[in-house]
Design a protein around this nucleic acid. Structure first.
Length: 303
DNA sequence: GTCGGGGCAGCCAATATACC
DNA sequence: GGTATATTGGCTGCCCCGAC
């Protein structure tokens, strides 16, 4: 886990990375909760098979904006290099934001995989590393540590390089699960899907009806007994506000005040009926769409 | 043909979740 | 604490279906 602080050495390795096709990247941000938030470290792994950490380079970029700009220009903006992050939007915000191209986010991949294929309580890097890749004893205490201090502690450096290792391993497993959860519809086994779907539908109806019923009963009971929290659940409520005005009053105001206000209004079937033949005087925009649904066939006709 | 209920989808505001 | 995105729950519109 080479830890580079020398500007020249960092520039050299960044130049090397321009030849890569995929990089697994994490960052540490100093004073993240202030207006002075700035990059402290950029950790880069260029070989996902490395578990030793030898291929994870820690680039110390604290208060070296020209190095960060160089990294953005050579790596982040380059569409030929895939950059893999966990919760990419957070890191990318400090690394070129919208200019960044070819970004992969393991958090987004994970969330798109159905729960039954990836049953995890949350999608934190630590959780995925433990449950998906069998890493144990992961310490996330350093996450909130002082990344503005120099020198960094051994624990901070250890934490920083391990995150890249976890990231690459999680990414690999997620790609496998993603492939499993996205079969080509053209070659799916419809007989199998029919059987499995009808099999779990019966169980689902039974379980779901109890689930929804219990949820309603629990909510009502907690409200009635004025209990906002149990050992397992908390009940929150909020006031919603909907502001309404008569359509005629709104149009009058817009006309008399000369307000620039124009937007499409959905003409519901009722409105269309109310407008009658007047509808023909309007240049309406019609959006067509097709929706499909699956219904159980009548079992009597099915025999 | 009309009416009403149920299922589904879309919209919106509030809230939760990731990261450091 | 900042920020982007997803989720949740209420509301509404639309369609289908059964009853009359």
């Amino acid at each position: 886990m080479p830890y580079l602080t020398d500007t020249r050495e960092i520039s050299d390795i960044v130049s090397e990375y321009t030849k890569a096709t995929t990089l697994w990247i994490d960052t540490e941000v100093a004073e993240f909760n202030s207006r002075n938030a700035r990059l402290s470290l950029i950790q880069v792994l260029d070989n996902p098979d490395d578990m030793s950490g030898d291929r994870v380079y820690l680039l110390d970029v604290l208060d070296k904006p020209s190095l960060v700009a160089d990294f953005v220009e050579q790596i982040m903006v380059n569409p030929n290099i895939e950059k893999v992050f966990h919760n990419a939007s957070f890191d990318v915000k400090y690394l070129g934001s919208k200019q960044a191209k070819n970004i992969t986010c393991t958090l987004e991949i994970a969330k798109k995989i159905p729960y039954y294929i990836l049953p995890v309580p949350n999608y934190q890097l630590q959780t995925l590393a433990t449950l998906l890749c069998n890493f144990n004893n992961i310490d996330k205490q350093e996450q909130g540590s002082n990344w503005a201090q120099r020198p960094l502690t051994e624990e901070q450096i250890e934490y920083a390089y391990l995150d890249c290792i976890y990231l690459a391993q999680i990414h690999r497993r997620l790609l496998e699960l993603q492939a499993e959860s996205n079969p080509d519809p053209a070659i799916e086994d419809i007989t199998f899907l029919n059987a499995r779907f009808s099999q779990i539908e019966a169980q689902w109806k039974l379980l779901n009806s109890e689930y929804e019923h219990l949820q309603e009963r629990l909510k009502k009971a907690m409200q009635a007994q004025d209990i906002s929290e149990t050992t397992l659940y908390k009940l929150t409520s909020y006031d919603r506000k909907v502001v309404k005005v008569q359509f005629s009053q709104l149009t009058d105001l817009v006309q008399t005040q000369g307000i620039n206000l124009d937007f499409p209004v959905t003409l519901t079937q009722k409105l269309q009926k109310d407008l009658g033949e007047n509808l023909e005087q309007l240049s309406v925009d019609i959006e067509q769409s097709t929706s499909s649904r699956l219904t159980l066939k009548n079992q009597e006709n099915n025999s």
